[in-house]
Write a protein that binds this DNA or RNA. Structure first.
Lengths: 222, 222, 222, 222
DNA sequence: AAGTAAACGAGACGGTACGTCCTGTCTTCTT
DNA sequence: AAGAAGACAGGACGTACCGTCTCGTTTACTT
């Protein structure tokens, strides 16, 4: 996905008419996003304030409010620009391998850096419907689509039952993922990735033949 | 469930020594919880403030802070007292029936009343570690245990593979449940209950025999 | 009074060199002054803002700042153009009659329309030295001169003592006038006009003869 | 006038019920008024802001807003407490002497210190009706009354005509005083004090006898 | 009965951030 | 050049809650 595809979440959809008036200051734009990242790292999501960002960026508060609706959108753009949803989803030959690879990367990122940020964004999405839509369409949906692509590939390979409900399968992965992330009950580690993968294979794989069994006989069993 | 089972989350564990000084005013206690419920209904979780509760209850702010750490704990107690997590989990004869019944009740409540409240509590749990523990042990864990019990029963019936990871199975249900609840993407309806149930059966049920197939041939498939 | 006599307070003294570049837009000029009058009437002096005028006039802010230094100057010009300080000061035959006529007209205008505006201008003059000079020379001084003329006429008629300090007399009229206007303590009505007139006659009139007494026996006495 | 008579202009009339709740912090009260005086001196009336006072006093903004309606009331109290309207008005034997003494003191103070403050207060009084009332009753009226007292004494001495309108006389003094103060046109000096005094004597003094003439033959004449 | 001690209502306190408004300047394209 | 448009840094506004604090007032259980 080219960088230019996510040029800006700010003023979503407002594809800057070339029109009249002073054009948006790219310098301020960057200073703001920089400040956000710096403050996120230094103080954490909860301690981040619009006022603090303005101060740190040397920018008027209005300049922030002009382009973003709330702190969450600001963080989302800063973070998206930064770790710009690199979702390669390379073909590793089998559904199991693809899933484990996908989860491995996702878990890694959530454990290392973006975990606290994603938790903060999700919390804000809960009490701001407008932002929730943005978060879903700009972030969550992309992960869902990446997963979808993986299952689709599995289907093409003949691993996945043609009648399987792929969207449900995605939810069965993303749900537990967020559950652990938000409640901090249980690690997002390789073991969990393997467990989830195995469980999902048990659900979506073609039955009566050995395609699943072949890979691992007894799915989620300890 | 006897009232004494959830005597009070306030000042958790502080089982009111009979000691000296004026005893806690039960009148104020009730007035506060009443006010919380009234305000929750009238204005919603986000608009609820400690100050507002004190005002509505005709109570000093200190009296609230004396017994509860934050608004989330306050709401949790008010709500727990109210719709006091009655989770009977009656035996309906089969794992499928038990699961669907459980999810039916849970979805109903979340859709009708408690959805917004649970979402608010979860959001607060995200940025308050202390409360998160409370929420988990006082609420989430109970649901998990109820599910656990259902799967256990299935195991005793011979429906569930003895080697199945029941805790993982619980997460595979509660995860998607919260996922839909928090992101408001997709309904918590009977269809979803059936889909989840079927998927879980595919995972935990004994293989090579037809115990699963018998109930519904191709699990999550459309 | 011809329009050319108060051609513009804007860019005071800068009598638009015919020079190069686009000439000043008379259309914008008028739109701005119109907007000022409309807003003054609708919202009052205090609520008037440069930004609001620009919006209302469909004009860039810069176009206002290019020609006026502050909102007060803008208002002064709009108002001066409008009720263009028509001070005929016709000779009514006696000092008393002239003074009462002058005050009558002045009070009428201040009571009907221009009171709030003049109060606003005066308030601004207090914290803006530059504008204060403008206000004095463009407005206050004119009133002073008109009064001066009246007293002068009285002197020529022999009513006023040749040694009287006419400027002081003017202050003794304008001072109380503004005092009542600004503090809104006491009306600017015919009675006050008569009282002021009588008091001033007592001060400036030729003594020992009956020129004053003739007109009204006991000056300011109830 | 005892200091205790002007204990506080804040929350005017709210004579602090001894009642319930934490009592007002006298420490904060003083810190605020101190800060006001310090900032007034350092930066001037116009540069004074509620925010700045709060910062300087080490006090929450709300604590200021709780007791004062606006910056003007704050300044008025600070200033009143400080130079607490010491208006002795001692009897100097004659109306002329009393008036000149009164004006001398007033002019001195306005020239030295309080001039800019009084101008600022007056400007604010213009666009805040509520404060205007306060300013009038807490300050202007007192000056008026002091003058009234002087004229009254003159009346008792037989200097002032029993039918003279004393209130009008007061306006004829205070009007020109404020006029010069606000417009900064002409000094508030001994000469002006003498001129005003002489003019007033011409108005209110008993005619036909020489009580006025005796003091100075030709009143306001140059 | 007097004393002690905690809980209570009230509400003031120092803080912090909010989101809005306006100022005066600037930068662009258009006329 | 002047103009319309509108973004920019800055700064104060007045509000809302936070969590803490200090009052005077109950309301028990000691002594």
């Amino acid at each position: 996905m080219a960088a230019s595809e996510i040029p800006s979440l700010s003023k979503v959809g407002a594809d800057c008419k070339p029109g009249r008036g002073r054009p948006r200051s790219e310098h301020s734009h960057e200073a703001i996003l920089d400040a956000v990242l710096r403050l996120l790292e230094a103080e954490g999501y909860d301690a981040l304030t619009i006022e603090g960002v303005a101060r740190q960026a040397g920018v008027g508060k209005q300049t922030i409010y002009r382009w973003w609706k709330c702190k969450a959108e600001l963080v989302l753009e800063a973070y998206a620009n930064h770790a710009a949803s690199k979702t390669p989803v390379p073909d590793r030959g089998s559904l199991r391998a693809d899933l484990e690879a996908f989860l491995g990367v996702a878990f890694k990122r959530l454990t290392d850096i973006s975990g606290p940020i994603m938790r903060g964004l999700m919390a804000d999405a809960v009490h701001d419907d407008e932002f929730r839509e943005v978060l879903v369409s700009a972030f969550v949906a992309k992960r869902h689509d990446a997963l979808r692509q993986i299952f689709q590939r599995g289907m093409e390979r003949g691993e996945v039952d043609l009648a399987a409900d792929i969207d449900l399968a995605c939810e069965l992965i993303l749900g537990p993922l967020w559950y652990r992330l938000l409640l901090q009950q249980g690690k997002l580690d390789a073991r969990f990735a393997r467990q989830l993968t195995t469980a999902l294979l048990a659900i979506v794989c073609v039955r009566a033949d050995s395609s699943c069994e072949r890979i691992e006989p007894v799915a989620v069993r300890a």
